[in-house]
Computed example of a mutant assay.
Amino acid sequence: MSSLPYSSRVSSMRPLASDITHWYLADGTRVEILDFLDDHARYLLEIRPAAAFTGPMVVTAMTELITRCGPPYSTLTDNGLVFTTRLARFKGARGGFEKLLAAHRITQKNGRPGHPQTQGKIERFHQTLKRWLKARPLPNTIQELATLLTEFQTWYNTRRPHRSLGRRTPEQAYTALPKATPTSTADTTEWRSCTDTVDKNGKVTLRYAGKLRHLGIGRSHVGTPVLLLIHDRDVTVSNMNTSQIIAEFTIDPTKNYQPKKP
């Protein structure tokens, strides 16, 4: 380990760790908690509860996090299907989370099956989280749990010093060093992503060059949650429930309505 003080170390390429754990409501209902933890500073960037997290819900959370904080250099997760399809029975297709990371050139790292030590830091974080929750009455609703988790996030990030961080809080450590971002290349075209739901007219909207564009997906997909991966003018739209590509577009900047490619 470096003998330099924490503030003098060079920012590493450590990943954004994510995992799903569980807690209980007062009536005994088991619910899930999704969190995103900066592996370098132990800074808790996001924590939220739900009855159960699906792949599309994780994609939405990660998309919001990228919008708010920028894309990380890499991610570290287990092999749950909400994060990766690499151990799925049928090979080849990538899940929504994998497509989102690819669109932002974020390196994806997964722990070895049966080797939870790879996610050791976030597992220890969950121990801290559950000790904190145990000291408080069980919430009656998911919304009450969300309020508790927001309170915990503030306490964990700003009031709890870490010995491994030189007795600094995660917030102090997170803001002390520049963040490692995805590997840059000579390609300077735009890469981004967003989520939407196909409206009653079979369309989704996308802001391009300062204007809202209406993309014609088709009425057969009304109500479908979708992930839009945008590479400059090219847009690929996939079903967030199945990861199937349902439409592709090349944006015409002179028009608001964009028909899909045949």
Rank of each mutant, 00 (worst) to 15 (best):
S3H: 15
M13T: 14
A17I: 00
A17N: 00
S18W: 00
S18P: 02
H22A: 06
L25V: 10
A26D: 12
T29H: 06
T29E: 11
R30G: 10
E32C: 08
F36C: 08
D38C: 11
D39P: 01
R48F: 04
A51E: 15
G55Y: 00
M57S: 07
A61P: 02
T63V: 15
I66P: 02
R68G: 12
C69P: 00
Y73T: 02
S74N: 05
S74Q: 04
T75S: 05
G80M: 07
F83Y: 14
R86Q: 13
R86M: 10
A88P: 04
R89I: 11
R89L: 14
G95Q: 03
K99W: 06
R105A: 06
N110K: 09
Q119D: 14
I122W: 00
F125A: 04
A135M: 01
N140H: 13
L148A: 11
W155D: 12
R159L: 13
R160A: 07
R163S: 14
R163V: 14
R167W: 15
P170D: 09
P178K: 06
P178G: 06
T183L: 11
E190I: 14
W191P: 08
W191M: 09
C194T: 14
C194E: 12
T195G: 08
T195K: 02
K200N: 13
L206T: 10
A209D: 15
A209V: 15
L212W: 11
G216M: 08
R219G: 02
R219K: 15
S220T: 12
L229M: 14
H231T: 15
D232C: 05
T236S: 14
N239K: 03
S243R: 00
Q244V: 13
I246R: 00
I251F: 03
N256T: 15
